[in-house]
Structures are given as structure tokens and as C-alpha cells.
Design a protein around this nucleic acid. Structure first.
Lengths: 227, 227
DNA sequence: CCCTTCGACTTACAATGTAAGGCGCCTTAC
DNA sequence: GTAAGGCGCCTTACATTGTAAGTCGAAGGG
């Protein structure tokens, strides 16, 4: 909560930063003009001096996140193309993990933040420099989808079927599901018993993300060599 | 609009079907209880006899879409594992293209529709039958993400940078962007001039989707053979 | 002094989801 | 016949949310 006795003047940057902090703390649904204004110690209508509408605020919020990402994932100075892409994608992912609401919000936007243009121009440049054709670079951009930002939309997670990443409770859940979902339960059971370190759980989103990324990079590399 | 003089009784199915139709026609934002009720020729509060809340309505709407998808993408009777997966993924995509708002809505949900569980159980089963280990099948599920439903979240589309898929207007847009985005504009220019059939445009989401899917299937096949 | 600009606040209203209660019709039981 | 209960709808009311339009006080300039 802002301290009303010592009041720092509002600015567009302060408004957007407070909005990001609120979304981080309580999710995008909690981000209302009244709630945000309360956090800033002002009246809701005052925000409209800085952002023309709620929609513009949300655009600005995403722009802020992507700017943070651009700063945290600078262009690697050296390295082979795959290493450079990988390094930057993973750095971006670390930022996005701090704002888990961002991918969902992004699907509601009609515009692309400026930092995204620059980032993809760099990706295309890196691919072209590595010998990819323009056509294959185009293909790669689509194949990467949202991986350059460290997230991928998954409709279904095996962990959701297991009901829990905790081996004790998941064991009972699995038994209940075995008849309806025989293959998934077998797979989950196998993964749970095969997990090396129980404290990490059997389903680690970081490992899965890197696996998918490497799968795509390997495939693209093969196509490049074949040109 | 419903005809109020001859009134068919409401049912949960009618409510959900009307909601899907409204979202298809005008997007999810137009889907309010009052609007939906108007379309059905009843008063908004009457809907609550069939769905306990707006949130439940949205869950039901997605359940309806996924049920449609399950019916339209039946298990292939025969074929090699890749062919079967591919056939079903593409059939699912055809359905999802009729409901372009569905992926976005899905990100706001906390539950998974039942048809999704069954579909993924089939996918895991298909992979296991083809000789994939449980571990690799688990990896594949994450790698596929939302591809089994024919969509993938793309933050950035090269077409968005070009400003238009129409070669005439895009040419001018590109010239304006060349200094800020040199690699992207070069790539877009190349793709536009290389497009075989101008009426299809230089960026075809179906082609791109199939490219990405095949890239992943190829990669997974290699890992399978290496086990 | 007056005027203008800036940055905040106030008042009001439309839109949205929905709690709570009411009403008419139909069915069942006595 | 009447009474009671259930069903499926409607009405009234209210809290919340975004925001249009206008007001006000402070500061700066002429």
C-alpha cells in the first residue's frame, strides 16, 4: 500500500510498474483501475491522465514486461548460433516465470510490443548468419512460436491427470483413474517411480521446456545442413 | 434471434450451443449473460437454472468445443503411428479453426475438459504402442503442447511485421521498417517474391503448422530409434 | 491581479454478474 | 374438488467495474 502522507508524483512508469506488481501478487483479475489506484494512493480516475483506457494500461503492462525481458536477455556476444539462441531464450524464460500471467494476457492483445519486434529481428538475423535460408528462417520463427519467451501453451499436463506431483497422494489418484486413462496412469506411475530426486518431482517444466527447444533446434539444424 | 412466440424450452445443451455460436460470431467478449439470454429469448437470470455461474458457462463452452473436436477427430483405424497422430491432430485443427477464440479462453480456465483427458490417453497409448518408452512419451506430451488441437501460441508473426499479406501494400510497409528491422524485412521480402501462388499469400498458417508438427515428429522418431 | 495549465478529485452512469424472492403452471396425493 | 411441492421462468435489487464530464487547487506566467 502506498503511503499517503509522503506522496510521490504519479507517472506513466509508476502506474505501469504498480500494475505489473499487482498482477504478480494477485493475478490479472485483481488488476482493476480502482484497485491499482488504491495501491498507488490516488483516486481511480487520476490514472486516466497517464493511460487513456484499461486496454491501454494492459498494453503498457505487457510492454513493461517485455522491456524487462529485453534487458535481462541481452544479445550474447559470442557463441555458435544454437548456443546464442538457447542462452537468450532461457534468460527470457527466467523473466517470464516471474510473470506467469503474461502469456494469458498476451492472447487478449491486438498489438505487438516494440521489444518483441527487435527480439525477433535478432533471431532472424542469427539464423541468417548461421546459413539458414530466408525461407527456413521464416519456418523457424513459426516453429518457435512462443518458445523465444520461455513459454509454450500446454492444454494438458500429465501432472494434472496424476492430480498431484506428490508421490503419496498421486498414488491414490492414479488408482482411481486407471480404468478411464490406462496409458496416462501407466506413464505417470512410471515417471513417478523413476524420478531420481523426489524433492524435484517427476515433472519439471524447465527440463521439459529445454527438451522441446533442443528437439526443434536439432530438427532445424538438420534442415539447414540439407539445403 | 430466438422466436418468442414459439418457444423451445431451455436446456443446458441449448444454452451452451448458443454461447458457442455467439462466441463464433462476435468473439468471447460479446458473450455476456444478458446477451446470451437475449439470443435465446429469455431473461438473463433464467440461465442460472442451467449453469451455476458465468465461469461454469465458460467451462461448459470449452467442454462443448472439445466434444465437437472429439467427434470430428475419431481414432484412425489403421496406419503407422505418425500418420495416425498427424491425421488426428489435423482433424482437430480443422475444428479449432472454426472457434478461433477457444485457445485464448482456455488459458483462463483452471480445469481440463474430460474429452481432453481421453484424447491424451489415446496419444500416450499410440506412442507406447509404437515403441516409445514411458519417459519419452511423457516428453512428447510436453513437446506437443497444444499441437494436438491444431494451435500453437505465437507471440510474433512475420506477417504482422510486414503489415499485410497483400504484396502491394506490404511492399510500402517494408520499406518503412527496413532500418529498424533489417533481417525481418529482408526475410519477408524474400518470402513475398518467392510465393508460388500469390492468391494464397506468402504466409500460410496451415503449412507452417504442418512444418512444425513434422519437425517434432521427426525428432521424436529419432529419439525412439535411439533407445 | 488574472489567466492558463497541470494533475488530482468528484459525481454520475452504463454495463456486467448474480443474490434473493416471486409467480404461474403442472403433477401428485388426498 | 383442494393442497402441496417442484419446475422453470421472471423481477428487483445490488455490488463491482470502466470511464465521461466536470470541478478544484496549486503553480507558473504575463
Amino acid at each position: 500500500m502506498a503511503d499517503k502522507t509522503i506522496r510521490e508524483p504519479l507517472s506513466r512508469e509508476r502506474v505501469l510498474a504498480a500494475a505489473v506488481a499487482l498482477a504478480d501478487a494477485e493475478g490479472v483479475k485483481a488488476l482493476t483501475m480502482r484497485r491499482l489506484a488504491t495501491d498507488l494512493g490516488v483516486e481511480a480516475m487520476s490514472l486516466y491522465f497517464y493511460v487513456p483506457s484499461k486496454e491501454a494500461l494492459l498494453d503498457g503492462v505487457l510492454g513493461t514486461v517485455f522491456a524487462e525481458l529485453a534487458a535481462a536477455a541481452p544479445e550474447p556476444a559470442e557463441g555458435e548460433w544454437r548456443t546464442r539462441l538457447r542462452r537468450r531464450f532461457l534468460a527470457a524464460r527466467a523473466v517470464m516465470l516471474r510473470h506467469p500471467w503474461a502469456p494469458g494476457l498476451l492472447t487478449t492483445r491486438g498489438t505487438i510490443p516494440p521489444d518483441v519486434f527487435a527480439y525477433f529481428d535478432w533471431i532472424v538475423g542469427t539464423l541468417l548468419d548461421a546459413g539458414f535460408s530466408h525461407h527456413l528462417a521464416h519456418r523457424a520463427i513459426h516453429a518457435f512460436g512462443s518458445l523465444p519467451f520461455g513459454f509454450a501453451q500446454e492444454v494438458f499436463s500429465p501432472a494434472a491427470a496424476g492430480g498431484s506431483l506428490d508421490p503419496d497422494t498421486a498414488e491414490a489418484d492414479l488408482a482411481a483413474l486407471a480404468e478411464a486413462l490406462p496409458h496416462i496412469t501407466a506413464m505417470v506411475a512410471h515417471e513417478m517411480h523413476g524420478a531420481g530426486d523426489p524433492t524435484l518431482g517427476w515433472c519439471d517444466s524447465q527440463v521439459e521446456f529445454e527438451f522441446t527447444l533442443d528437439l526443434l533446434l536439432d530438427g532445424l539444424d538438420r534442415l539447414r545442413a540439407r539445403r
